[in-house]
């Protein structure tokens, strides 16, 4: 993960120099070059082996989940539907596969209506939010429930001053 933070910082520095209007291709090229130049040093520190190009590509998606605020790296997953065995297992499996850990979980069944709210840590997630949403959609279809995933800071913004 150090790689990604490093690339994020390089990108910010490059945009800082070239200005907001800088051509995206040029910026990506520069970031890749700089990263390649320092890659050996980074490698010896034992970080992952992904190519710089791939990392730079992932950056635009993941840049947001910098750990400035906890609530940006947390997802609130809400699950509703008719109760049957395997819903908790199914949903937590999706989270596990995406390398998201569960911070808090709250689940009830009232008159055979299932309701669950999970707070998950997505700071180590391998996938973009879009991909994760698609997984939830498929899992929801399979399990016969509705699954919604929203970043925690939406709730923070709306319900906390």
């Amino acid at each position: 993960m150090a790689n990604e933070e490093l690339i994020y910082r390089i990108t910010r520095a490059v945009y800082g120099r070239l200005g907001a209007g800088a051509d995206e291709g040029t910026v990506e090229g520069l970031v890749t070059d700089i990263y390649r130049a320092i890659e050996p040093v980074v490698e010896t520190q034992g970080s992952g082996g992904a190519t710089a190009g791939g990392q730079a590509g992932a950056l635009s998606e993941r840049g947001s989940t910098s750990r400035e605020f906890d609530s940006q790296s947390r997802l609130i997953v809400s699950v509703f539907g008719v109760d049957h065995p395997g819903i908790v297992a199914g949903v937590s499996q999706v989270l596990a596969e995406a390398e998201c850990s569960i911070i808090d979980i709250n689940q009830t069944v009232v008159q055979s209506k299932f309701a669950m709210i999970i707070i998950a840590d997505i700071s180590r997630a391998r996938e973009s939010a879009t991909a994760l949403k698609e997984r939830f959609r498929k899992a929801g279809e399979r399990l016969g429930v509705r699954i919604y995933a929203q970043r925690e800071d939406l709730f923070n913004a709306m319900h906390r001053i």
């Binding site: 609130i76 809400s78 808090d104 709250n106 309701a115 709210i117 707070i119 919604y148 929203q150 939406l154 709730f155 709306m158 319900h159």
Partner: peptide, 16 residues
């Protein structure tokens, strides 16, 4: 839980 179920449901109802 840092947010009550009511708060989470209200947001969901609004967005969905």
């Amino acid at each position: 839980m840092e947010y009550t179920q009511t708060e989470i449901l209200q947001t969901l109802r609004m967005t969905e």
